[in-house]
Amino acid sequence: MSNSRAVLRKKRKKRILRLSLLFVFLSLFAAGILFAIDIFYSGYKATDSIYQKLGPEKNQRAEEVEVTKDPFTILLVGLENQEGGKGRSDVIMMISVNPQTEEITMLSIPRDTRTFIPDAGYEDKITHSYGHNGITSTIDTVEEMIDVPVDYFITTNFEGFEDIVDTLGGVTVDVPFDFQAQLTGSLKWKKYYEGEMDLNGNEALAYVRMRKSDPRGDLGRNERQQQVIKEIIDEGTSFSSITKIDDILNDLGENVKTNIPPSKFASFVKLYSKLKNTQINQLSLKGYDDYIDDVYYYIPDQDSLNEITLSINQTLDGESSYNSSEDTGLNTANNDN
C-alpha cells in the first residue's frame, strides 16, 4: 500500500512539474507575442513619421527597385540647423550599391564645395542647397554635379545622431591619431587618443565632425564618418539591442527622414547582412581651395567629377572600374574598420 502511495506521489509531482513547465512556456510565449506586437506597433508609428515621399516633380524609376537584386544609390545627409529655421547639409555622402557584384562605392562631398544649385539659380556652397527647398534641392544639386540619379535618401539631424548612439550604449572606435575636438552644447574640449575609445553620442558627433586637425583633411573626416556609421548599424542590428528597439525607433522617428518605403526595411537589413564585410571603394573629389569675395570655397576639378561619375555608373552597371584608382583618387576601405 505504501509503495502505491509513493508511486502516486511521484506521478502527481511529475504532472505538477509538467503543468508548471507548460505554464512557464505559455507565459513566455504570450510575453513574446506581446513584445512582438509592441515592436510592430512602435515600428508602425515610427516608420509612419520617418517616411517622406518625394514630390511628383522628381523623376522616379519606371520600375520598382528590388534592393536585394537591383543596383541603387542612397544619399546620406547630416543636417545642421541654423537660427531662423533654415538647415544646412553639413554631411553629404552618396553610396552606390550593386547587390549582384557585391560592390559598394562611397563618395563624400565636402560641405564647402562650390557648385550650381538649381533651386537657387546660381553657384554656392553645396551645404547651402538644403536651405532652398529641403532635401529635394540637395538631391537636385548632387545629381546636377555628378550626373548620377539618386534613388533613396536618408537625412538625420545631429540631435538624432547623438540620441541613437546613446540609446545603443555608445560606440567603440579606433581613433587614428591624438587630437582635440569641441563638443556641441557644452563647448568643452574633448581629448581623443590613438587607439580604441568608447564614445557617447556627444563625443561621437564631435569625432565625426572634426576636420581642421586631421592631416588628411576631408578624406580623413569621411573615413571617420564611415567608421562610426558602420558601428551604429552593427550595434543596432545586434541581438543585444533588440530590447532597445522601442527607444531606437523613437529616436529615428523624431530625427530621421527617408523615402525608403517601410515595406523595404527588411530587404535592406537582409542586404546589409550579406554585404557588411564587403570592402567599400571610397571615391574622393579632387579640387583646390579658393576665396571668392572673401568667402572660402572648395573648387571641384571637372576631370575628377567626370571620373567619379564614370566610376559610380560602372558600379551600378556591374563593370569593375577600380583598376584606375590612382587616376580617380579612389581609396579602398575595408568595412570591418
Results as ranks from 00 to 15, higher is better:
4 S>D: 12
5 R>C: 11
5 R>S: 14
6 A>C: 06
6 A>N: 09
8 L>E: 04
9 R>H: 14
10 K>L: 15
11 K>R: 15
19 L>C: 12
22 L>F: 12
25 F>D: 09
27 S>A: 15
27 S>G: 15
30 A>Y: 10
30 A>R: 09
32 G>H: 08
42 S>I: 10
43 G>W: 06
45 K>S: 14
48 D>L: 08
51 Y>I: 04
54 L>R: 00
56 P>N: 11
56 P>C: 03
56 P>Q: 07
56 P>T: 07
61 R>T: 11
63 E>H: 06
68 T>V: 12
69 K>S: 13
71 P>Q: 03
77 V>K: 01
77 V>C: 03
78 G>Q: 00
79 L>S: 03
79 L>M: 11
83 E>H: 08
83 E>R: 04
85 G>S: 14
86 K>Y: 14
90 D>W: 00
93 M>P: 04
101 T>V: 05
106 M>A: 15
110 P>I: 07
112 D>F: 02
115 T>K: 09
118 P>S: 12
119 D>R: 10
120 A>H: 08
122 Y>Q: 11
124 D>T: 02
124 D>W: 04
126 I>H: 07
130 Y>G: 02
135 I>V: 15
142 V>L: 05
145 M>N: 04
152 Y>A: 04
154 I>D: 02
158 F>R: 00
159 E>N: 14
161 F>S: 06
161 F>R: 05
162 E>T: 06
167 T>C: 04
168 L>Y: 01
172 T>S: 10
176 P>D: 06
177 F>H: 10
180 Q>R: 13
180 Q>G: 08
181 A>C: 10
185 G>Q: 06
190 K>H: 06
195 G>I: 08
195 G>T: 12
202 N>Q: 14
202 N>T: 14
202 N>S: 15
213 S>I: 05
213 S>C: 04
215 P>Y: 01
220 G>H: 08
224 R>A: 11
225 Q>Y: 04
228 V>G: 02
230 K>V: 13
236 G>Y: 11
239 F>P: 00
247 D>N: 09
251 D>M: 01
260 I>V: 13
261 P>I: 11
266 A>W: 09
268 F>M: 03
271 L>W: 03
272 Y>G: 08
274 K>S: 14
275 L>Y: 12
275 L>H: 09
276 K>S: 15
277 N>Y: 13
286 K>Y: 11
288 Y>I: 11
291 Y>S: 13
291 Y>G: 07
291 Y>M: 13
292 I>G: 00
294 D>I: 05
299 I>R: 01
301 D>A: 07
302 Q>L: 15
308 I>C: 10
311 S>Q: 12
312 I>W: 08
315 T>H: 03
319 E>Q: 12
323 N>Y: 10
327 D>A: 10
328 T>W: 08
330 L>H: 02
334 N>W: 07
